[in-house]
């Protein structure tokens, strides 16, 4: 970390936060949010948390900005004020300042950044750093912690993606009556109502295979470098989103159908949980990958941990990819799954 650079970044982050509150145009606020996420990503990189930075870049700055844009596109671009607005703003800012103050009070009590003697570096994390290589043969400790030591958390995180996508899909896929109601209630903004040019279509079409190749690399190379199922899945999802933005959703559905999308959403988590279940059936504890060596005697317990983590990552990537695409298609087409943005 270079402190001058850090101060600059953190100032910009705070400025972005204020600007996104200040700005009246919601589309502008969304873009500023995207910038905020990207700056945060730089801050994480500066701290050496490259995996977090990668996720922030893919999810925060990338996909969630598109989700916001899709939502703004179908609802309203401007904020409507009511008479309570001033008092709400006043109260909420007082609460925010109070909470911020509470959080700040304790900062003096924290160990210094990067302090080798701090409790965090001497308890569980120390064990992971010292033993991960021996016990799992995975050089990237983040991956071994996420996919093995605390795999149960990661399984439910994938479950969170599943639930979020299923909720959004179910809510927006409503009866026709409700769709009409939604349409009349919100005034549609048609600032992007231009047909896409040939150049955009062809350029996006060219990019998609490379994005998907890169995504697969990120998924399978998570053992050795930053990345893994979540990041790779988001990039895969982003490639589908890009394609459906350049053409339309129907075109993508011709290759990756809606029914298939919802199924693969569940299948991804089921791969993860299923591997855990196989371990349980083979006599180990749930998610104790070393039990898999009974099924493949040639691998041995360490090698089977290493390989099971890969399959788990594939499951995560499958769910995240279809989750991101399901959320995008539901939001951008208002639940009709026809054209989209």
């Amino acid at each position: 970390m270079i402190w001058q650079f850090d101060i600059l970044l953190l100032t910009l982050v705070v400025v972005c936060g204020f600007v996104s509150l200040w700005i009246k145009d919601l589309m502008g606020a969304v873009i500023v949010f995207g910038a905020y996420s990207f700056l945060m990503c730089l801050v994480w990189t500066g701290m050496g948390a490259v995996d977090v930075a990668f996720t922030e870049a893919a999810v925060g700055a990338g996909v969630s900005t598109i989700f916001f844009i899709a939502t703004v596109f179908h609802t309203s671009r401007t904020i409507r004020y009511n008479k309570w607005d001033l008092s709400t703003k006043f109260f909420s800012s007082i609460i925010c300042i109070l909470m911020g103050f509470f959080l700040m009070v304790a900062i003096g009590d924290f160990p210094a950044w990067g302090d080798a003697l701090s409790p965090v570096n001497n308890n569980v994390a120390k064990y992971y750093l010292e033993n991960s290589m021996e016990e799992t043969k995975v050089p990237n400790v983040v991956t071994s912690v996420l996919a093995d030591y605390r795999a149960f958390d990661t399984m439910f995180e994938t479950g969170v993606v599943f639930v979020a996508s299923l909720v959004i899909f179910t809510l927006l896929l409503q009866s026709d009556g409700r769709k009409k109601l939604m349409k009349s209630a919100f005034q549609k903004v048609s600032f992007l109502n231009v047909s896409e040019s040939l150049i955009i279509r062809k350029a996006c079409g060219l990019m998609v295979p490379f994005m998907q190749l890169f995504a697969l690399y990120v998924v399978v190379h998570g053992h050795y470098s930053p990345g893994g199922g979540f990041q790779g899945g988001v990039i895969l999802g982003a490639s589908l989103i890009l394609l459906s933005m350049a053409y339309d959703i129907k075109k993508v559905f011709a290759r990756f159908h809606m029914k298939f999308m919802i199924k693969s959403l569940a299948v991804g988590v089921l791969i993860f949980a299923g591997i855990g279940l196989i371990c349980l059936i083979l006599g180990g504890n749930f998610l104790d990958y070393s039990a898999l060596s009974k099924l493949f005697p040639s691998m041995g317990s360490i090698k089977s941990r290493y390989n099971a983590m890969l399959w788990v990552e594939v499951g995560v990537a499958l769910t995240v990819m279809s989750g991101m695409f399901a959320i995008y298609t539901s939001l951008s087409s208002n639940g009709k799954f026809e054209e989209g943005l």
């Binding site: 479950g159 599943f162 299923l166 029914k259 919802i262 199924k263 959403l265 569940a266 299948v267 988590v269 089921l270 949980a273 279940l277 349980l280 504890n285 749930f286």
Partner: peptide, 23 residues
């Protein structure tokens, strides 16, 4: 000795399988 995790696994697996089975 697996009962503790089975408590959570039963509804989890069926909850995940239902969107597929319902088709």
């Amino acid at each position: 000795d697996q009962f503790l995790v089975l408590i959570v696994l039963f509804p989890l697996f069926v909850g995940l399988l239902i969107p597929i089975i319902a088709y």
